[in-house]
């Protein structure tokens, strides 16, 4: 059953849960995934985001999120000035390309010339979000709970290895999905857990035979 605080809530910066609160969360999630100082951010907006972002403050909310502000942080309004202070260059592009959803943003985040990541996400309404792509790889990260995403070889034992390690650490899995490009090729596992996963466990997961890469997400 729904909590009364989801009925009268969330506390948020207006005007729109999808175009403002969701945008701030997308920015915050992108910041966490990038995991490095952001010197330049190029945001491409699609659909309704592209058409209405200035009126909804979607641009300010996205930048606020990149600065680490929450969806109820009064500083969202002034995020451009904050970005300027932090020497983060920000650019917005509008695209008419159909991304299959009305509220989509693509972040191109840079740390000087050293690193660059492309992160695509959508705002689902009511402040809910989903990151759908990281550097061209399809993902489904909602920022609602703790989650790991691993890239592995499609071979027997990988799923058991990862879930076994989580079990040993007494971390409960709330949902799990495994998909692959084709047999014996690249596969992806998305695991959501009820609690955080520490660095040591993540390293052990990375060492499971067949696992190539592990990404860890915390709720935003």
């Amino acid at each position: 059953m729904i909590s009364i605080f989801d009925v009268i809530g969330p506390v948020m910066i207006g005007p729109s849960s999808s175009h403002t609160a969701g945008a701030a969360r997308l920015g915050k999630m992108a910041r966490a995934i990038f995991g490095e100082p952001i010197t330049k951010a190029v945001m491409t907006l699609y659909g309704s985001f592209a058409k209405t972002y200035k009126g909804h403050g979607t641009d300010k909310a996205l930048v606020g999120g990149l600065l680490g502000f929450d969806a109820d942080d009064a500083r969202l309004k002034d995020s451009f000035a904050e970005a300027n202070k932090k020497k983060m260059d920000i650019f917005f592009l509008e695209s008419s390309e159909d991304m299959g959803h009305p509220n989509v943003v693509k972040f191109d985040l840079y740390n000087g010339d050293d690193s660059h990541k492309t992160i695509v996400g959508r705002s689902l309404g009511g402040g809910l979000i989903m990151i759908t792509e990281i550097d061209g790889f399809p993902v489904e990260v909602t920022g609602e709970d703790y989650a790991i995403m691993s890239l592995h070889n499609d071979q027997p034992g990988v799923v058991a290895g990862v879930s076994g390690l989580l079990g040993e650490e007494n971390i409960n899995i709330s949902s799990m999905r495994v998909f692959r490009k084709r047999r014996h090729s690249d596969a992806v596992m998305m695991v959501s857990t009820d609690g955080p996963i520490d660095q040591a466990t993540l390293q052990k997961i990375e060492a499971v035979p067949g696992v190539k890469r592990v990404m860890y997400f915390e709720p935003v």
Binding site: V7, I8, G9, P10, V11, M12, I13, G14, P15, S16, S17, T20, A21, G57, K60, D72, A74, L76, K77, G126
Partner: peptide
């Protein structure tokens, strides 16, 4: 509408 803090009840 001016990007102040509000409580969605039930929506913004």
């Amino acid at each position: 509408a001016k990007m102040s803090r509000i409580v969605a009840c039930p929506t913004a």
